[in-house]
Design a protein around this nucleic acid. Structure first.
Lengths: 346, 346
DNA sequence: GTGAAAGCGCTAACAC
DNA sequence: GTGTTAGCGCTTTCAC
């Protein structure tokens, strides 16, 4: 049965092109079944007799076969790949989301593809093209897709999309987030309720922070307070920006409460306040945003807005997997809300 | 020339299966060329006459065609996908690397696939299988691949591998990192040189931190100092762990310098020291590891070990792209080194 | 510079 | 439960 050829290594050699790797064909031949049967044995073992199953798994371990997912995806039009787009991975804000997203996906056999759009939207289009080209089973966006071009492409691609970390009356598809407007309002009311009158904001230069700032200002105005002093810093926000921002703030006059658009910024403000001998919270109330892991253990501990990033990631995964498996996703929009965590700094 | 069928939408409908999306065939037909010509027009425009190029690009924009990378990868055995494995994305340590890796890859048209292995190696095997199945053009590992099974699989797969953030005399393939042993030694010598005698370490429970700890202890012993006091904390490290660790440290007697295995841990130690009225650096020297963005702006600013995470990411990308494009990677091992950044805390 | 033919490795659809 | 057939959408090879 063997061709008169030089003694070949265990793994069968394929005809002309290809990677030279072991294929399902090789496994099937070794197990004495048809390729499709080997395929079934690997992807849905129950559909196959125990005997055949054993022969196939034996052949797999004997050859060291690893399924070519590219070929499988092409044939089945299901890639089990999910793309996530974040402004940058360097900010700690989205880490929890990405982590839980990755985990939840992995549990169901899906893999995450990561793209960074930057805070400017210029790269987004090229990124989108690269992503769609891979035919992921879903795309998770950080924030809302605003660009008309982007929306069009995404809709045309017919790939399930989850927008996150924001709320909009006009979601592209699915959505899991919370209202930045409500955050700004709630924080203003919280600080006002604590008796603060001269409010300030240190906000990163990004669109969501802007909206928190705006509603914060509106609420302050509505309460008859003096105009909110706002300092803008570049995104992504840093401790350093926070320190510098407090300096600027103090120059522009008296201020008794600062709402920072990230916990890192707040840590900067806290640090600068300390070096200047400003007592927090007595002389100055400081609040952050994100409730990062370190917020509770700062000195003073940080009053901040808790966003359940894990829940966002998990829910986004659920949404996409449900779609991919053909289950109808029951709800297209989930508002995970937020919570003001009262601690020592305000 | 048209079949007597109901007026169809712009995009041609395909025969039976498939995604229903526009294919290269559709584009080619519209442009009046063969599919392969359309393919060339898109992937190597120079090989095609200007006239044909225009007809093809017009057809692309008219149809909204997006290349199916799955099919392309299958045919060309080049996926332009690179996998990265990190213990967790939640620690800030690897962020710079991942970010610059992602960027460098994107610039050359490659995409990043992200996998989290956790700090325990149990998930690693399943992850590896999932990754290899996608036939990435390269795999970037955080740390060294130790498991024999993992090494075997990786070698068998024939995929370029870059191990990072460490050094070993027996790399799997390519390597870009630095010596943790040297870091430990250098930091011990630095602190000893500053006159400190009672050294301590707060280290995350991970294998690389272990090695820094070990060489730190060895150097202290060699200098005739009393035994180093070590506190282990769970990985990933947190500010909270740092605070608690200092508490433990103080119980075990006098200590005048602490080397923390991450800057976050060091921030915790700094915070706890302040609340206890311990003056840093007068009563206690504190050093970190990582030189995270915030280290320079803490109060006191943090003496720490700078690792150029960006360089690691960039070099890893270079390595893999060079391999993928068939250029011989000139050097298989790059030691990016490290630097002790002297600031106020020690 | 352009094209025809032949797969890449897998799975959906339809048998039996 | 298992097999046959026919692609998924692209690119390689080899012609012209």
């Amino acid at each position: 049965m063997d061709q008169p050829s030089p003694a070949a290594p265990a793994a069968t050699r394929r005809s002309r092109r290809g990677s030279g790797a072991v294929t399902l064909h090789d496994v099937a031949k070794l197990a004495g079944v048809a390729p499709i049967t080997a395929s079934r044995a690997l992807s849905s073992p129950k559909q196959v007799s125990p005997e055949v199953l054993k022969r196939v798994t034996d052949a797999v371990s004997k050859t060291g076969y690893v399924r070519n997912g590219l070929a499988g995806s092409l044939a089945s039009t299901r890639s089990r790949l999910v793309a996530a787009v974040v402004p940058t991975i360097a900010g700690p804000v989205f880490q929890n989301s990405i982590q839980s997203l990755t985990e939840a996906l992995a549990e169901s056999g899906y893999q995450l593809m990561l793209g960074q759009s930057g805070y400017v939207n210029s790269r987004e289009d090229a990124l989108l093209e690269a992503i769609i080209g891979r035919r992921p089973d879903g795309i998770v966006l950080t924030g809302i897709m605003h660009s008309a071009e982007g929306r069009k492409r995404l809709m045309a691609a017919g790939i399930p999309v989850v927008e996150t970390w924001d709320l909009t009356p006009t979601p592209l598809d699915m959505l899991v987030g919370f209202s930045h407007v409500d955050v700004g309002t709630a924080m203003a009311e919280y600080l006002i309720g604590k008796g603060h009158r001269r409010l300030a904001v240190v906000a990163g230069d990004d669109e969501r922070a802007d909206r928190r700032l705006l509603s914060f200002e509106t609420a302050a105005r509505a309460a008859g307070l003096p105009e909110v002093v706002a300092v803008r810093v570049p995104a992504p926000t840093t401790l350093k920006s926070g320190r510098e921002a407090l300096g600027q703030l103090l120059e522009s006059g008296a201020v008794d409460a600062v709402f920072c658009s990230s916990d890192l910024l707040a840590l900067g403000v806290l640090t600068e306040a300390r070096t200047r001998g400003i007592d927090v919270p007595k002389d100055l109330a400081v609040t952050g945003f994100g409730d990062l892991e370190f917020a509770a253990d700062l000195e003073p501990s940080l009053t901040t807005v808790r966003i359940d990033g894990q829940a966002i990631g998990r829910q986004a995964a659920r949404f996409i997997i449900d779609r991919a498996e053909g289950r109808t996703a029951e709800a297209a929009v989930v508002d995970v809300g937020f919570q003001i965590i009262e601690r020592a700094s305000a």
